[in-house]
């Protein structure tokens, strides 16, 4: 019985940890929005914007990945 409660708490905790991915998603969307607008105004900057955009996406995606790591730690380690 107590094992089941711990299991349920693990699942709920992992689910709650993934709420943080919300921020990562918003960040990725905003950075792509900015980069695409810049490309539309000045198509010559495509290459520069693309590399900075991917770097920025990796930064904001890292936050979502931290949440994922916490969720995995809850599910598979603790």
């Amino acid at each position: 019985m107590s094992g089941d409660i711990v299991m349920a708490a693990k699942m709920i905790g992992a689910g709650l940890a993934m709420i943080g991915a919300l921020g990562g998603g918003i960040g990725v969307g905003l950075s792509v929005q900015g980069a695409v607008q810049g490309m539309a105004r000045n198509p010559d900057t495509y290459g520069n914007l693309l590399s900075s955009m991917i770097l920025g996406i990796a930064f904001s995606e890292a936050i979502a990945i931290y949440c994922l790591v916490i969720a995995f730690l809850m599910l598979f380690v603790v």
Partner: peptide
């Protein structure tokens, strides 16, 4: 920390 967990998180989540 961010270097470690960015790479690990991406690749481990892909595996799972």
């Amino acid at each position: 920390l961010s270097f470690t967990f960015r790479l690990f998180g991406n690749m481990f989540s892909g595996m799972v």
